[in-house]
Design a protein around this nucleic acid. Structure first.
Length: 223
DNA sequence: TGCCAGGCCGGGT
DNA sequence: ACCCGGCATGGC
């Protein structure tokens, strides 16, 4: 079995290779924490381009603040975010999340992100519509907390490159990174963005893997 | 044309 | 403890 140190080196090498190939990603173009929180929900099983459309509509109507969103009727909110897809579901989830933030912190995001990270994650997971990826994305990108975000791309890439087993779930994949990398929110955010970029460009069809930055013979053999 | 996207929930085994 | 259908728009 590989030592901790060699896993760390491999993860560092993967990061360097991806950064070199793709450059720094401009992840979550939202400027405010509110935007990042809303984006975390809207992007569930959805292409980011559609999320941007929905967020643009909210923004141009000056509705992209916690207070404004809290005042919107759920069915009205649903129409605003229609381009994001599954819009009725997401309207309900946004309402639940914003309602909880208002209730627990009076809408004070500073207070929210100064609370204990473990407690905050557990609490977020208890909110309707907030699962592991959404919770971690909020903690990392809006809160600046060093928690690693795992998604379908992350798991597929890790599986293809033998960093995890085929049956590894969310928690196991997450802990691979958190146990072997120093907690660094900026780097975690960049790492996740780079893995998504890799997932989008490669590791879907064999042909696209000819230029995969992580290309190995082993990797090719699994395709 | 059909399949899929940076998930998650609820109901059924 | 898994497995599956539903949710829904827009892009390739």
């Amino acid at each position: 079995m590989a030592t901790q140190n060699s896993i760390t080196q491999k993860l560092d090498a993967v990061y360097d290779a991806l950064l070199g190939a793709f450059g720094p990603q401009h992840w979550w173009p939202g400027e405010t924490r509110e935007e990042m929180i809303v984006g975390a929900v809207l992007t569930q099983n959805t292409a980011w381009a559609n999320v941007e459309r929905a967020m643009g509509r909210l923004k141009s109507a000056n509705q992209l603040t916690l207070a404004a969103l809290a005042d919107l009727d759920e069915s009205v909110l649903a129409e605003w975010i229609r381009p994001a897809g599954t819009y009725r579901v997401k309207a309900r989830r946004l309402k639940a999340l914003i309602g909880w933030i208002l209730e627990a912190f009076g809408g004070d995001l500073d207070a929210m992100f100064h609370s204990d990270p473990g407690w905050l994650r557990t609490s977020l997971l208890a909110v309707h519509g907030v699962g592991p990826e959404t919770a971690d994305a909020i903690l990392l990108y809006a809160g600046g907390m060093p928690t690693f975000v795992v998604d379908a791309y992350t798991r597929r890439v890790c599986r293809r490159h033998f960093l995890i087993g085929g049956d590894a779930g969310y928690a196991e994949t997450k802990s691979l990174f958190e146990r072997n990398l120093r907690p660094d929110a900026d780097r975690y955010g960049e790492y996740h963005a780079l893995l998504v970029e890799l997932g989008k460009r490669h590791c879907r069809v064999k042909a696209s893997c000819d230029t995969c930055p992580l290309r190995t013979d082993e990797h090719d053999a699994t395709l």
